[in-house]
Design a protein around this nucleic acid. Structure first.
Lengths: 345, 345
DNA sequence: TTGTAGGCGTTATCAA
DNA sequence: TTGATAACGCCTACAA
């Protein structure tokens, strides 16, 4: 079979010739600029449509317009991504905003933070993106340093305290944590353990602190175990914690995967949820609703978060001052996995 | 705070001047082309590094190189994406291949097929991508028509029968289906129902046919129910099927979500899995391992599939002939949700 | 209101 | 092996 001969692309000059005018007028017409008669504009647009012309992105970018693209680089192991509903939702939200401005999203998935920095550098160097979105901020995150040093328009999705003054869209995890702790306390739980994300993530310290403060405020015993967020570490942590001398009656996990793993672990130990132990998950996903009992979980609208972040990034690209924006507060969805604390504990 | 003054970017001319040579030599040096002395090459690279120069993507693209980008457009409701581990894994696989050629992935998430076609047209028209990946092929898919008519380099991820002769990477769903049916038959099941995806997806008919053929081959009663792949429709289908006069003892679902919903539905009806009813899921995700009992499921390596498709697309972009490539065959992971058929049925 | 021409940063051609 | 120089396609002063 013959490979289809690539027909020469139609250019602005072709349209100008066909419409019997100049390339300048074609450009004006397409971009809705003043300085052209209505008659000419209509004629040009008609011809452009008929010829199927659309401006080459590279040419406009070269002529001074931006790349009409923003970048998002995700540093995760592909294995973990399969269970992270977060990013697809976030991306979907971003896209809703980009679509209105017909901008594109350049995505890169890398396996380590160094590659992430390198990707941002490369994108900026080759002018492929007008700005970047930074998620999953870590302690001493190199990306923050690179971005603020090079002046790439960027929005940090995370706590302002780690954003080095850059524009930030953040969620108040502390309030979420407090809801979870108070919910368990109100149900009579006197000992609660937080099964947390790795310390390298910036949000971990924030949630740790909020957890301890909230627990102290309601006067209950508390402890924290740090994990790697995996299913295995969730199960391991659950077993360890539940077999300890003074086992807690309430567990708060930093994601849904670990919470579900803990559910299975508890059942495996002959414990009932929520009669013997109550479980709270962070990240309210479908998973939380699918398992039995359904999991009480902290959730927020990630699609909206993505849209919010994208909107702010476009503002920054347009020259807006650096600023801090709070997104919706996490809400506790109470379901069947939390109940009154067992008596006599 | 002042917005950082955007320093003028360093161009190839700057490097040429500093290295006391011409822009042509700089270009040759950077791209590792012959026709330049080693001394000059070294000098140029040194200067380029010192000045922090990297070529502007737009300029290269305009000068004839490609966009160094491939496109992937996903037509799904954001809500559904949150529970679709497929795409993130697929994307991760694609990225591993693109990284080697330092190409980028342009992503677009839209909510309906028309927007998808429009996105592809737009990308092609503005020359933003060198090629596209087509997934989730539907019956009479407009994208196939547009792509083959415009000659955009593309790879169809799906059955060759719907790819209109374009380069295809496919998975043999029929073999997967046969494994599932034979597995149930071997366990003594005599009545099996397939809870299927919507008919608009091209793969649905393929799996339907494979299911019927396999069931006939092993001589068991069989039926098919079409759904929208949602949790709710999975539960609804399970209830309807299990309450029917001649209820099947085996169910084969077209995704993991519905299978999990059915698990809950079965429990809700006081049925034991697998003692009363066996359940097989398609798409072996973490979800299948997290629930109790763990689900027997058909799975394949989606990360590898993404890499495979990307590799073939790069070949097509490089001018390869249209061709058909089979990816790994789905494998049945036998877990606790399937067991011997109940006696006396 | 219209058209001409220069510039954006590379790559490719063609003399030297 | 080099170095001018002409595309590439668009935008935009500036001139008509």
């Amino acid at each position: 079979m013959m490979s289809a001969a690539r027909a020469r692309r139609v250019t602005i000059a072709d349209v100008a010739r066909e419409a019997q005018t100049s390339t300048a007028s074609v450009s004006y017409a397409l971009n809705g600029r003043p300085g052209i008669s209505e008659a000419t504009r209509v004629r040009v647009l008609e011809v452009a449509g008929r010829l199927g012309w659309s401006p080459a992105n590279a040419a406009r970018a070269l002529a001074g317009a931006g790349a009409d693209t923003i970048g998002l680089v995700i540093a995760k192991d592909p294995r973990d991504l399969s269970v992270e509903p977060f990013y697809m939702q976030f991306i979907a939200g971003v896209e809703t905003v980009l679509a209105d401005r017909s901008m594109g999203l350049l995505l890169e998935v890398v396996s380590d933070p160094d590659a992430e920095v390198e990707a941002i550098r490369r994108w900026h160097g080759s002018r492929r993106v007008d700005g970047v979105l930074l998620t999953d901020v870590m302690v001493d995150d190199q990306r923050i340093a690179v971005v603020s040093e090079t002046g790439i328009p960027a929005v940090v999705v995370g706590d302002p305290s780690v954003a080095a003054g850059m524009t930030t869209v953040w969620t108040d995890d502390a309030v979420g944590m407090r809801q979870a702790v108070e919910h368990l306390a109100a149900l009579g739980h006197r000992r609660v353990t937080r099964v947390a994300a790795p310390r390298r993530y910036a949000y971990t310290a924030i949630r740790d602190e909020a957890f301890e403060r909230s627990a102290r405020a309601v006067g209950i015993e508390h402890a924290i175990v740090h994990t790697d967020l995996s299913q295995d570490s969730g199960a391991t942590a659950a077993h360890a914690v539940l077999s300890s001398a003074r086992a807690p009656s309430g567990l708060i996990f930093d994601n849904d995967i670990m919470a579900v793993a803990a559910l299975t672990a508890a059942h495996g130990r002959g414990l009932s949820v929520p009669d013997d132990v109550s479980i709270v998950a962070w990240d309210d996903s479908l998973l939380c609703r699918l398992v039995a009992p359904a999991l009480t979980a902290l959730g927020h609208d990630v699609v909206a978060l993505g849209a919010h972040a994208a909107r702010r990034l476009l503002d920054v690209i347009d020259g807006a001052q650096q600023s801090v924006h709070q997104d919706a507060v996490p809400r506790l969805q109470v379901r069947a996995s939390t109940g009154r604390a067992p008596t006599g504990v």
